[in-house]
Write a protein that binds this DNA or RNA. Sequence first.
DNA 1: AAATTCTTCAACCGCGTTAGT
DNA 2: AACTAACGCGGTTGAAGAATT
Length: 310
Amino acid sequence: MGRPPCCDKVGIKKGPWTPEEDIILVSYIQQHGPGNWRSVPSNTGLMRCSKSCRLRWTNYLRPGIKRGNFTPHEEGIIIHLQSMLGNKWAAIASYLPQRTDNDIKNYWNTHLKKKINKSHTATDGYNMSSGTSPSCHDYVPEGYDMETRKQDITVLTFPLPTMRLTPPIYACSTGNISRLLEGWAHSSQKNTQGKLQERAIADDSHSSNNDATAAASVREKSRAAGDQGRSTAMTHEDLGTLLSFEKVSGGSWEKTAAGKAPFGDAEAKQGGENHQPPLSLLEKWLFDEASGQVDELMDLPVDCCSLSMF
DNA sequence: AAATTCTTCAACCGCGTTAGT
DNA sequence: AACTAACGCGGTTGAAGAATT
């Protein structure tokens, strides 16, 4: 009915997300939980549309996401499910809680389709352009042994889960955030100045929002880091330092024994006046992972996606 | 070493579905 | 029941890096 897409609004930023934005988003979601995406941009000051925030969360920042190479076992599951369900990536992803639908879709389009096509042309002259979906029975990934495959096929014959396995655990991995910070540092060597100025302007226009207090705190830290020319990659150690504040009696915040000022002296002085708990929520969130909730969930055995799910 | 082509994947777009009024 | 707004999904695009010429 002519409603303009939200992302067409003036002032809505597009393109790759910066770690600053990621941290703000993560911090906000840790506090409020995922959902109600419409309120996210206004409450955080992010110059992104709600849709973009949701996408970024589900495809990249969501806890427990595994990135990188797919295992033969995962390949096998994807191939089998794709042959059963077609391109229902969200449904397929529900069997692989560590992988996002976008990831699976990309992997299918860039790797598996080719592999299967190759396999078919090698055997019986099958051609992807024929329009017929290749069957899982025709291609078995290397390293995906027949016994596992048999188990999976049995297991995956169960009805689809009605909802994603993903529990309301908002733990995340320091590795994930460190990785994105590294990426940001890399790219920021090219255009740090411009982006920071842009962010600073955007930040100022939202500084009075109460719900954005924690996020604003994060922004301040990030901006300060950028202003001081920290253009080198943030390591895991740095991130650990970033998160090493803890609350002490009297409502003020100070470093833990192992901690050092993460943003330099100037920032430390600023922080002294500002009694905001720096990254407290993010910190707690990240430390939750240490309890092993996510790992336990993600290290499910081969037949994980069956019985525990139904 | 430079130019071109290919590959990958994060992000966007549009549409269908669902929920709220 | 009808309408609107928000959400979620699948297809597609485009930028960046890798590989090739």
